[in-house]
Amino acid sequence: MNAETPTLVSDFMQRLSATRRGARLARRLALHQLDAWGIPYGSDVSDTVAHVVAELAANAVTHGHVPGRNFQLRLQLSPHTVRIEVTDTRTERRPPTPGQAEPPSAESESGRGLLLVQELSQAWGITERSIGKTVWAEVPLPAAHLTGRPGLPAQGETATRPSRHLPHP
């Protein structure tokens, strides 16, 4: 195995209703899943992931909503990052790509979400799909999270854990 290839440790995926309630639930599920992976509530990583999930889920239900269709939250834990993916089914509205997001006017009450995602993540982007899109972001794990945590391998080790899927609400 190539040392440069990221090793997936754990994967979580959940479909949620494309409503404000679904967006709130996405954030709560993310916090719960991180805690189950050994990244405790209130830690810097947990708080950062919560903010990113909240912004991406809010965008999915506000700008990516298609009546009768859900959005999907996916979290992937690797030895060095937590990858967040939020997929919606709207094809005609595309968010700005990394580097294109510009701050709104000072009077504007919205338009700062992707700028926040950009600041909180080490990388983010958009993956086109045949129906809809996936907006993803990667939050780095500090070295303290890489050793001695349940569910996380020590640096240099690899591990695979099964997905934990929670029932659909």
Rank of each mutant, 00 (worst) to 15 (best):
S163M: 15
S10G: 14
T158D: 05
S108H: 12
L114K: 09
P142A: 08
E109T: 13
D11Y: 14
R161H: 12
D44Q: 06
L16R: 09
E157R: 08
L34Y: 01
G156Q: 09
Q72E: 15
Q122P: 03
L8H: 05
D35Q: 12
P67C: 02
S46R: 01
Q33V: 10
E92G: 08
E138Y: 04
G125E: 14
R69E: 15
H32K: 15
L77P: 01
H80N: 10
E138Q: 09
L25D: 12
M1I: 07
P167Y: 03
T97A: 15
G99M: 10
T7K: 13
G22R: 00
A54V: 03
P153C: 02
L141S: 12
S108T: 15
L73P: 00
T158H: 08
P142D: 10
A123H: 14
P103L: 11
H32L: 14
A18R: 06
V82F: 00
G99K: 04
G99T: 10
V117W: 00
P104H: 08
L25Y: 02
G42V: 04
V53Q: 07
L34T: 03
W124V: 11
P98A: 02
A106R: 13
I39L: 12
R69Y: 04
I84R: 03
P98D: 06
E109P: 06
I39S: 04
V82C: 06
R69V: 07
E109Q: 13
R20N: 13
L115Q: 09
F12T: 03
S163P: 00
G113C: 04
S163W: 07
A60Y: 01
S108C: 12
E4N: 14
A3V: 15
H165L: 13
E102R: 15
P98V: 06
L34N: 05
V9G: 04
R83V: 07
T89R: 11
S17C: 04
T91A: 09
R28T: 11
